[in-house]
Amino acid sequence: MTITTDLLDALLSPDATRRGEAERYFQNVLVLDRVAGLVSLIQQQNNTNAQQQTVLSLAAVLLRRDILRLADVQALQSIVDPLLESFLQTANNDVADQKTRTAMGHCLAEICGTVALLSPSPSDKEQVMARILNAISNAVGC
């Protein structure tokens, strides 16, 4: 069971039947697989048109929800780099882009928060945040 652009399109469909089927399919995918699928989908988008931005936004919102359900520190750590890559690569500075990237940023912040809560290792917690801080260092100001 995979997460595809078509599936996300169906989740946004005004047709209740199609949307219901998509929701059932989505719910039946394991959380770990959903997270991997959503991250992969986010990586594939290039954020250049409205349709892709919509898919990206939805993927980010769904991903954030699943991050909160994931209690696997290693799995969370493994998606930081691909998310960061998408977060920084997709920048084109229009308003829609900013909203989409802010949603992706919330995923990254949620990973920080969840790792900080779950991991007994101080270095784990610091590493995740340090990676994000280093990556956005230029973007925020220097």
Partner: peptide
């Protein structure tokens, strides 16, 4: 990857 300074989504992430 390097985006403009004062990048709003990056500041929001912070």
């Amino acid at each position: 990857w390097q985006v403009a300074q004062g990048d709003i989504p990056s500041l929001r992430l912070l």
